[in-house]
Amino acid sequence: MAFQYETYIRPSTFPHIWCPGCGNGIVVKALVRAIDRMGWSKDEVVVVSGIGCSSRTSGYLDFNTLHTTHGRAIAFATGIKMANPALKVIVVTGDGDALAIGGNHLIHAARRNMDLTVILFNNEIYAMTGGQYSPATPEEKMASTAPYGQIEPPFDIVRLAEGAGATFVARSTVFHAVQLENYIFKALNRSGFSLIEAVTNCPTVYGRRNRMPIPASFHAYYKKNSVPLEKAAKMSAEELTGKIVTGIFADVDKIGFIERYSRMSERAQAVRKKRYIKGSSPKGEVGN
């Protein structure tokens, strides 16, 4: 059967809560196309989200879905993946959710190389609560809690994930919908921790404060200012100001947490068996 978005959504949950012109739908569609290419059954996919506009995605998709507390999606997902490694666990989160309140979980899941794929919708703002600045808001941009312009520098999300140990890290934008889908597809194929930063637009609470009230102006901006990683490598820091560097930032073959745990567990069971055969008590301690 030909691919249909309807296969993967829950029409009863519509209309969705996103504003006209919001870029989130483009990310969700790219995610759905990538999942479809994986050929997975809907029963084996789990989508876990936190709190915020992008995290409402979980309710709209027809998988096993979990809409958790603010910032904690990755920690919930860790429990699910360990308890049933056969499940394909995808985390949907936003820049405020994953980088501020949930920053600790993000870096630690990357460090342990937990077998999860994180789709981080970066709209550079806390949109659901009305436009407060986030850890991804660029300097000098306006936000409801930065009425004189943002004075804090933002995180470089892909560098953060890569530095923390993620095996696959990529960035794309909602203007580059096909590239975004391809990156997500690659991430889903990887074991270990993968993260896709999807740069998306919020015309309502970000655009209006920053002279971009028309949704299409964001797409024009992404088209004009996106620079592929290879090209960016030849540009100076000055030339890169205000640019969005897209591409695959990390793609390494590294054994994931689940495989490591399984090997450790086999070792522990072998020790237990050996000691039992030797005649010591089956509850005999090891290493005590």
Binding site: T78, G79, I80, M82, A83, N104, H105
Partner: peptide, 22 residues
Amino acid sequence: NFIQMEDEIASMAAIIGASLAG
């Protein structure tokens, strides 16, 4: 499965996730 999480909040989250996986 045993895991030492990065904090108390994550530990609580992880056990809920594991329970949902049965």
